[in-house]
Design a protein around this nucleic acid. Structure first.
Lengths: 206, 206
DNA sequence: GTCTATATTTGGATAGAC
DNA sequence: GTCTATCCAAATATAGAC
């Protein structure tokens, strides 16, 4: 499953990501994880201490990078001569798209993230809001710059709708199926372009 | 937890809905469910045969009613002299809103539904597409009537975005919190109104 | 750091009395 | 239909050798 040059720790993280995506946090057992990672059962507790800590590490690994990319893209979009709403939306959406494509387990991670939303677990929520919240606030500020007359509450609702639509579509929850003649890349790229247009119109409306 | 005039079967369904929402299908044990329902552990297997069957019944109970309400509202919206896109959107969104408010466990069910999306379980997907698919197709046809020049693929993507936004917001996944001075009803009612405006603008854009 | 072996808990399901 | 008691499989976690 994983190349042998990855460390035990990394192999566990990769296998956990895949299996948590498929079966959920409670549904994927450490036995399945260690078997898929080709490591001993006891290795999880040695490296991570507990299953809960393993779950957090699965998030940290990807979210750190996702947030760096989003903030860099945001900075880039705002540095243009005439910043466009669509580019700020792209800065929010495209890094998620790339994550779902670039890495071996990126696609799995999008599903893990969606499961985290569903968990409503206070510990996870706090963890996500600590890591995710300030990024969302920066984007909210940027969007507010384009929509100076919009009610704050309405803006936050709209960003919430966009997050829901993004998660739902990137995690393949809906009935949209890739047709066999288009590649995975162009399928998702098209989805992102559709979402940016849809969301830009939704944001701009009075 | 539940009034004594409910049958054993109904008490199990209600408790299962709540606990599946909180802990997931794998995370909620039949022991937790039967304890919360104040019935004996053996009652689940007697009435439902297995945990998997219990899960399906939790869906069937709510989805049947949700679909009836959506289709009735759709028919109503299309029967108007000058049907409006917003009313068709409302026919899709408001029954979900009402479900999340009307019943004791309706809100829990929205979270269960979101978990079902995340499961990606083939059995559940088939069950949902059998029960959900034809309703989505009827709505797609109705929307296409308002947007005659829109590409079919683009329309389906947009409906997928709306579904994601609806599920995400009705299941309280995002950071939007109800402020203490507004009631639960008006909080959600406002969310639905926001979503309808947002989605209508997104659907109409070229 | 990694393994085997095992302690301990918890899960789904069922048998059989009432 | 409902209960008690129990079987059996699977889970997390740990102890201790290497």
């Amino acid at each position: 499953m994983n190349a042998p040059h990855f460390s035990t720790k990394e192999r566990i993280l990769g296998a956990a990501e895949t299996l948590f995506a498929q079966h959920g946090f409670a549904g994927a057992s450490l036995r399945q994880v260690t078997a898929a990672a080709n490591v001993n059962l006891a290795a999880v507790n040695y490296h991570f201490g507990s299953k809960d800590n393993l779950i957090e590490e699965v998030f940290r690994r990807r979210l750190d990078e996702l947030n760096v990319r989003r903030l860099a893209a945001l900075k880039n979009a705002l540095a243009a001569d005439e910043p466009k709403l669509e580019d700020v939306l792209g800065a929010f959406i495209r890094p998620a798209l790339e994550l779902s494509l670039d890495h071996e387990g990126g696609h799995a991670f999008m599903r893990v993230l969606a499961r985290a939303f569903a968990e409503h677990d206070e510990r996870l929520r706090k963890f996500l809001s600590d890591n995710y919240g300030h990024v969302l606030r920066e984007f909210a500020t940027a969007f507010a710059g384009f929509l100076p007359h919009m009610d704050k509450e309405e803006l936050y609702w709209r960003l919430d709708f966009i997050t829901g639509a993004l998660t739902h579509s990137m995690a393949d929850f809906g009935p949209m199926r890739r047709r066999s003649q288009v590649s995975e890349e162009s399928h998702r790229e098209r989805a992102a372009a559709h979402l940016i247009r849809f969301a830009a119109a939704g944001l701009r409306t009075a």
